[in-house]
Design a protein around this nucleic acid. Structure first.
Lengths: 332, 332
DNA sequence: ACCGTTTGTGTAATCGTGTGCACAATGCAT
DNA sequence: ATGCATTGTGCACACGATTACACAAACGGT
């Protein structure tokens, strides 16, 4: 039992050992299939003894279903996505689906990476990353309708999507900050080219416009703590803003640290800082961030619902909309 | 080109379209194989036109190599592992290997999960998690020698391992804290049953013993911020300790917050707090943690080296040892 | 005793590639 | 012109499972 056997036993060999045909072996492992219960028990016993498990690769080839799911993400470590990734992986595993992670952030040729995954005949594709275009995803996985996490309405027949709406929550947050007397707002983007970032910014810009205000400055980071820290120093020192809306929570923490450490300004009295995502870390005592938050569980529920709908071969694209809420901390 | 075609084209169909046999199609996609360059160009053109890519599942079945790698981890979100996971996934992708994540933390039956992955004939297995035993990993992936991230010397023929040694760094850290006048030490474990945790604790316990001291209290958390916070309150209030060594950085941050918030004690004057892992967040200005740190890049380099050695079919187990270093912050 | 149905099993085809072998065509040296 | 090495291509089988079909055995009802 222990140690390393060079080769894995096949159904045909097991068949010989159990004195049956390989078809019967297969049936022993298919829950509802015509087979004598005595035979099944005997086969399972012999199988266990020899460490036999049906080869999923061969089964996938025959079935035309791999039970693999491609998850296209920006990065793994980034907490904004990590909590959702963790939840989704858990839900997939419970359904006996295996996730293949495609990590876009540091891979030079994202399209080639997606093509590689598509050759593995993945059953589902979930695109979390805003670094790949919807059209590329559709073209590359042309037999597998992708599920796109989108912030804007996508009108594409070949895509199911989850839309996220934070307009109302952004309005509440801006309302509070303006009533607190802040006047000069800046937006700290996570990237300079992503449509997700553009839409998030629009939620806050609209809320400001409603009150006759606008962003007086804008900076571009890379969703990291360090970039939040560095850009905030510039915004506070050069542009003299007194409120910074950040593209995610991690940059917001960096910005808060920069304000406190470099300029000696504290939240929320001297300046207001707002994050986005609602990661667990934002609620830690040392951070206590005000943030535009999304219910991660509801979010992943929506993804799973789309996957199931897809599994059941219900035709047509489908779209689910989720709304963000404001989570209040002591930074705004 | 755009939109969704129900079925994927096969090599036989493409063969008909290009006026060759399916064997020639296959050769067109194999870099060094005897084929006329004119034929290859023509085939690749037709393939591109029809969106043909060879089916990796079928190829794997034929090749006996899947180019899939199973990564057995505790969780995805947990920053301790996330940085390394990110690095490793990047390196794998550069080698055209696809990672399948097995997430142990929240899955009730970890062994079944590993068995599922093993049916996909993964080429390599990397076990990061301390929640599965070495023997289970060897038994389940009996044709695939696993690579185990271990903290103790493993003498098993069927395993390659990476050992991590933090004894010297722990000694340096304890030395500093003792010279600062601290006397009552506590250890805050991440789990109550893991051998990784036991060994980490031993590094510090040995360093204390060398100075005629010992841990006066021990608590068990779950590697999370909240558990660090809660257990630290108990340790400080009930056991009156003045130094807490934590099983990872995240719990250390929780403990620091608890000390400051609940008991009004500050580091490093009133109490000393030490983390482990050396995650990026530990170095953030708001944390500035003293921590037993591991060079993540060197660590992943070692993993990749073992994978390559395994790929080249170099026989025999191999083991690489890495040493931790102390990273000084303002908490101890 | 006969017929229809149900049950259990084997045979053989299939999924889409890769590759050893055979063989024709070409190039080169004598 | 002959012999030999090289190149390019097709045929056919293997990889390891699933499953439609066929068929024998068992069973129940009249």
């Amino acid at each position: 039992m222990s140690g390393m056997n060079r080769r894995r036993i096949t159904s045909k060999e097991l068949a010989k050992l159990a004195g049956v045909s390989s078809a019967t072996i297969s049936r022993a492992f298919s829950p509802d299939s015509r087979i004598g219960s005595a035979t099944r028990d005997r086969i399972l016993a012999v199988a266990r003894e020899h460490g036999y498990q049906p080869n999923a690769i061969a089964r996938s080839l025959n079935n035309q279903r791999s039970r693999l799911v491609a998850l296209v993400v920006n990065a793994i470590g980034n907490p904004c996505e990590a909590e959702e990734q963790q939840l989704l992986v858990h839900r997939l595993q419970a359904r006996q689906l295996l996730p293949i992670i495609l990590c876009c952030a540091d891979h030079s040729d994202r399209l080639q990476l997606m093509r590689l995954a598509s050759t593995y005949q993945v059953d589902h594709v979930v695109v979390f990353s805003d670094m790949v275009s919807m059209q590329d995803a559709v073209d590359i996985f042309h037999t597998t309708k992708p599920i796109i996490v989108s912030f804007e309405p996508l009108e594409n027949e070949s895509v199911s999507s989850i839309r996220i709406d934070g307009a109302k929550a952004a309005d509440e947050i801006i309302d509070k900050i303006v009533r607190d007397g802040k006047k000069r707002f800046a937006y700290l983007s996570g990237t300079n080219s992503s449509w997700i970032d553009k839409l998030r910014r629009k939620w806050f810009a609209d809320a400001l416009a409603k009150r006759g205000l606008a962003f007086e400055a804008q900076a571009f980071g890379d969703y990291s703590y360090d970039s939040g820290f560095k850009e905030a120093v510039l915004l506070l020192h050069r542009d003299k803003v007194d409120a910074i809306i950040c593209g995610n929570d991690v940059m917001a923490i960096g910005a808060r640290d920069a304000a406190r450490r470099v300029l000696g300004k504290n939240t929320p009295d001297d300046i207001a800082i707002v994050g986005q995502d609602g990661i667990a870390m934002a609620a830690w005592d040392c951070n206590d961030l005000t943030t535009l938050s999304l219910d991660h569980v509801a979010f992943i529920d929506a993804v799973v619902e789309l996957i199931e709908r897809h599994d059941a071969e219900i035709e047509g694209p489908h779209s689910i909309t989720l709304t963000c809420t404001a989570r209040w901390g002591s930074t705004a």
